[in-house]
Nucleic acid binder design. Structure first.
Lengths: 153, 153
DNA sequence: GACAATTAGATTGCACGCAATTGAAATTGA
DNA sequence: TCAATTTCAATTGCGTGCAATCTAATTGTC
């Protein structure tokens, strides 16, 4: 008896936690992205916001939040920093005064071209085939969506 | 031409980013853990530190950091909060005065029993078989380790 | 044994995340 | 119609993460 860990402790062992695998992988991604995004003058969450806006801009803060699963407490100051960097403009909608519409500036649009180098570097860093990554991505997204479904009871 | 997105934009599309899948899954986990950990009086990163200590305590801050991929800038204040909650004690090693050893208090040890309910709830929330989760975990850990390998050049 | 290099942890500053609250604007419903 | 409710964004407060810097302690080299 008295092995280094009892079998009853297995569910509490760090290396058995999928949440920690995901948590630590997210940080690893962040560290790989950092030097790439420094060249664009963006943080990782700011890069995600720019990805959303490069797909479609002139959208309310709320839409960005739903896309990224972030709320105004995170987005409002982040968007103000992007505005200070002259990448976006924030304007109240005239149709619905509650909405703040986020639009790209010319510089914001232009940054997309510089950003095209980023995914390539990440693919190389992951040292993995595209199809393997797509499969993993889909599995992780499915897990995330099941977790998010639980939160809404 | 002019489909809703050009094929050249695929690498920059949010839904094609594995990093965002991981990032958003980590936040989803955090939100599912929150109510469970509130009952233990822990945040999620504090829970991770406790998992490490429940495996082995009386270890230097550095060891905890290597295990969780966190540095002293994160751990020092976090450990001080755990100390303030009477879950750990921080003492300088007499053998090497540079080391601060983290030991569990009786309350810290006792909390492990209350924590056993957590992994069960998470498993239920993930709505997934254990073997599927183990496979995913191993794949994500392998990806994380490849990413971390790139960081050290 | 002196001294440069290294190591461990603490500190500072900045940027998230998120809960909770606030206030303005729009929607609803009796 | 107009009071109650809902929606959206902003704000506040707290706890991470992490880069950069600092101090004290230890190690390596001569």
């Amino acid at each position: 008896m008295a092995r280094k860990q009892s079998a009853a402790d297995a569910p509490l062992r760090l290396d058995n936690q999928i949440c920690f695998a995901v948590y630590s992988a997210a940080h690893a991604f962040n560290r790989v992205y950092k030097p790439l995004l420094d060249r664009l003058g963006l943080t990782y969450p700011q890069y995600l916001v720019m990805l959303v806006l490069w797909e479609r801009d002139d959208v309310p803060v709320k839409d960005i939040g739903e896309r990224l699963f972030l709320d105004s407490g995170t987005l409002t100051p982040l968007l103000k920093r992007l505005e200070a960097a002259h990448l976006v403009r924030r304007t109240r909608s005239s149709e619905d005064e509650r909405l703040v519409l986020i639009a790209l500036t010319p510089q914001g649009h232009a940054l997309k071209e510089k950003a095209r180098a980023v995914p390539q570097s990440i693919l190389a860093a992951s040292d993995c085939s595209v199809s393997e990554l797509v499969t993993m991505k889909d599995e992780i997204v499915a897990l995330r969506d099941r977790l998010n479904a639980v939160i809404g009871e």
